[in-house]
Amino acid sequence: MQNIAPLNWRRFPERYLLKGNYCENCKQAFFPPRAICPNCRRKGKLVSMEMPRTGKIISYTKVYVPPEGFKNEAPYYLAIIELENGARVLSQIVDSEPEKIKIGAKVKKVFRRIGEPDKYGTITYGYKFKVVE
């Protein structure tokens, strides 16, 4: 069993609460959080920030050939989502009628299981999105 728990734990704020950061100098939000502001470099002033839970689909695809660990979930939808503050996130789309998954559709964050290495390891939880009316 691969011990992925410590690695996962360091990313809980990002995966559970969509915690990214925000540069008070250039007023841009980043997700996942950046170590330095790519716009302002050393002049940037980054602060931790929870991202909005809603956004819209910028682009999407249906995955038939998934990476290892997601075989039994395929086919599933994967989308680039622009959150309300402009930050972008790549996420699975769940609980949505296929005809409603389209560019521009409004989506909301939900908390789901992402995966587990095997039946003995820790379960990875995190965000996915669903289309809302």
């Binding site: 979930e73 609980d95 908390f111 789901r112 299981r113 939880y125």
Partner: peptide, 16 residues
Amino acid sequence: AASDEDSCTMAVEAAR
């Protein structure tokens, strides 16, 4: 519950 849901994810959604 869908395959990626369990008692924990549903608890979070209800509380949220």
